[in-house]
């Protein structure tokens, strides 16, 4: 078993943390996982992304050309990754930040207005959690409750106040696409 997930969006949309949350949960499940950011000038302003690979054996390449799943939080991410998703893969699109529909018909496209959903349930800052929730619904790498538990374990005390909004956003994203 190997799942390759790319999380992509603007810097500030919680791209790196969205990926880390998947990585923490994989680790807590005793799975092998790699998390690798794109780094460099991209981090200041442009599109930021990270690649998460989850497997049940030692992971070779931490990077892939054709991921099984992509979370596209903005338009540049959709443009960059739509054609790269493996046939039969999953593409989660944040329609709040995108002015076109995904074109691929050989993949499972889930479109949802993540900014709006996040704002409705608590805070627009939790849009990354809405997207991760939607991903888990389309690609059940692990159950939703597992990711909530891992988030609780790995959130430092000083940030615990953000937990309730994040959990609500995760559930909202999960249920939106369920």
């Amino acid at each position: 078993m190997q799942n390759e997930i790319i999380v992509s969006g603007f810097g500030g949309q919680g791209v790196l943390f969205g990926g880390q949350l998947l990585a923490y949960t994989a680790m807590d499940h005793g799975l092998h996982v790699t998390w690798i950011p794109s780094y460099g000038p991209e981090m200041r302003g442009g599109t930021a992304n990270c690649t998460v690979i989850i497997a049940d054996e030692e992971i070779g390449s931490p990077l892939v050309r054709r991921p099984g799943a992509v979370i596209a939080m903005n338009k540049p991410s959709l443009d960059k990754y739509e054609q790269l998703v493996k046939p039969g893969g999953v593409l989660i699109v944040n329609t709040s930040m995108v002015d076109r529909s995904a074109e691929r018909e050989d993949i499972n496209v889930v479109s949802l207005p993540a900014n709006d959903i996040a704002e409705q349930v608590g805070s627009s800052k939790s849009l990354n959690m809405v997207m991760v929730g939607a991903l888990l619904s389309a690609l059940p790498v692990f159950p939703l409750e597992a990711i909530i538990e891992s988030m609780d374990i790995h959130t430092p005390e000083r940030n615990k106040r953000f937990l309730p909004d994040n959990v609500k956003a995760l559930r909202a994203g999960f249920n939106h696409s369920a």
């Binding site: 990585a23 994989a26 680790m27 996982v33 790699t34 998390w35 690798i36 950011p37 992971i59 931490p62």
Partner: peptide
């Protein structure tokens, strides 16, 4: 290399 410096693994 830089990718190992930046990568996270358990």
């Amino acid at each position: 290399d830089g990718s190992m410096g930046q990568m996270m693994e358990p």
